[in-house]
Design a protein around this nucleic acid. Structure first.
Lengths: 217, 217
DNA sequence: ACTTAATTTAGTCAAGCGATTAAACAACAG
DNA sequence: CTGTTGTTTAATCGCTTGACTAAATTAAGT
């Protein structure tokens, strides 16, 4: 297994198909037959390459986690100057822009953002993996970062502020189709996403009593 | 049909069971057998009383819509004074408190908040009903309300502000189990919900450049 | 109490599911 | 070009699903 060129292509096609279908109708409702048809592959290939439908979905989710880990928060945290108010403002700006990029950048497959947090919404066996590999590390780092900005906060309040920080972005990912339908569009426009990011930043800075001005252009 | 006392009880038990199970594992993954077992009723009763599983789920969702319609936004809009800044502040406060009540009040079944917006997240046949009866009227009223507060806003921006307004509340409903797991609790505490509502109000007032002070106690 | 009709029940159905298999096919080494 | 083996294919498995049905049961009107 994995010696021919075609093997890698088939596996990738199946992962993408599984991801796209799961994004559309929900992880639990995706069938092996639908995945195979969408990928233009055979049902048997799912079991040949991944062992089971669940393992294929696991691989799809893992590919998302890997994408997030390739843009680590630690880069921002390491290069940020949290000793001045202006530096804190810039750090918040970068954190939100990273989040927006991971959710909405056209270079990141659209199904990523629709699946990642789907895992968290309902009880399912993939949650533990997801929490250990991505969610808890992200949250712990963000709590530490926010506490570095305001040393008076306890863990729960810092996390609470983080929720307020990312929540409009998350909403626009989760309810993407519903929002787009209201807007009469088929994809978020660049302008809209910029407005979304900018207001998320501004509201977060107001919440944390940080100055709104930015350092670089 | 519907002539015996037991009929109403059975129908209600099936609706609650369907709602609770759909809240737990997702609308699409609920089975007739699971509903019947959870309601301690017979599978056949689902088809006898509702015709099909889908119609039962439709009835469950309709019961949620009815709960929202019983607490109409129009009450707030009609009694609000949007001519003064203080009146506008109070209106925002009431709108957010209504939303928080509908999502988190223990008097409202917990499964309501976990299902309502589930309908919006994935393509499914119930969306049209939901949009026509609840979502579009709510959004249209809120857009009008926000435009009454700031007459310079266009529809899209007013709706955009509304998203920012409700998004933290919605997040805490959608990701309830994940958040509770992080908090190490099994249910949101009164204090936490008050903090959530208060900060939502404060952030909205900041966003709309309204004074933070309140009118009544 | 009896009758009637509404409701509940258990059993059955075809359809679609994930998984498995053996045969057919195709890629690569020599 | 040929043999080997990794990969793909179509057919089939047992199982669960939503739906249906006829029989049993129960509630209410008389």
């Amino acid at each position: 297994m994995g010696k021919y060129q075609s093997s890698k292509k088939t596996k990738q096609a199946l992962i993408v198909a599984a991801g796209e279908l799961a994004a559309e109708c929900g992880i639990g409702l995706v069938t092996t037959r639908a995945i195979a048809a969408h990928a233009k592959e055979n049902i048997g290939s799912i079991h040949y390459h991944f062992g089971s439908k669940e393992k294929l979905l696991h691989a799809a989710i893992y590919s998302i986690i890997a994408r997030w880990q390739a843009t680590p928060l630690s880069n921002i945290v390491a290069n940020s100057d949290c000793s001045t108010a202006a530096g804190q403002t810039e750090t918040i700006r970068r954190v939100i822009k990273r989040f927006a990029t991971l959710l909405f950048d056209p270079a990141v497959p659209a199904w990523h953002s629709r699946i990642l947090y789907q895992v968290m919404q309902y009880a399912n066996p993939l949650q533990d993996t997801f929490r250990t590999l991505l969610l808890n590390p992200e949250l712990d780092q963000m709590v530490a970062l926010i506490k570095a900005i305001d040393v008076d906060l306890d863990d729960e309040t810092a996390q609470f502020y983080y929720f307020f920080m990312i929540t409009p972005l998350l909403f626009h990912a989760d309810y993407k189709y519903a929002v787009l339908s209201r807007l009469g569009q088929t994809e978020y426009e660049e302008d809209y996403l910029r407005k979304l990011t900018d207001l998320s930043i501004k509201q977060t800075l107001l919440m944390l009593n940080l100055p709104l001005g930015r350092i670089d252009e």
